[in-house]
């Protein structure tokens, strides 16, 4: 059962990352090189996991939600490998400054989203 929850979440999360990345790319100006698609999914996934954690649904229902939405959906929606690869690409293409911006921006926005999500989830829980 637990495995099925993780798999079901990932079956949605991974394609959602792919489609979000593509939708964001289509809306960027042609010269834009920063990987905004990966940035978007990492920040959105951190916010969602923060909300889930802050809301802290108790009991077995909470554990199931954690596996489905936390481990499965948010885990597969967000990615460290593509983030690292895109940062390396920026540095190799002669934009070490943009690579540093990508790292700092992703970390700051992702952590801010996590802290905000936990606080908001806690407030909603009451």
């Amino acid at each position: 059962m637990n495995w099925l929850l993780v798999i079901a979440g990932a079956l949605v999360g991974a394609p959602l990352r792919y489609l979000t990345d593509r939708a964001v790319r289509l809306r960027l100006r042609p010269g834009s090189v920063l990987p905004w698609g990966t940035f978007t999914v990492n920040v959105a996934g951190s916010l969602a996991l923060g909300l889930l954690t802050g809301a802290a649904v108790a009991g077995p229902a909470g554990e199931r939600l954690d596996l489905l939405l936390g481990t499965g959906l948010c885990g597969a929606l967000t990615t460290y490998s593509t983030f690292s690869w895109e940062t390396l690409r920026l540095a190799e293409d002669g934009s070490p400054l943009l690579a540093a911006c990508n790292v700092l921006g992703t970390l700051l926005a992702g952590l801010a989203a996590m802290y905000a999500g936990v606080a908001l989830g806690g407030a909603l829980q009451g």
Partner: peptide
Amino acid sequence: RPFFGTGVLGGFTTFSAYALDIH
């Protein structure tokens, strides 16, 4: 590449759990 790079490796690694553990 969609299967292994975007799918397997993207699903294996995670940014959200990283941010949650820092918190």
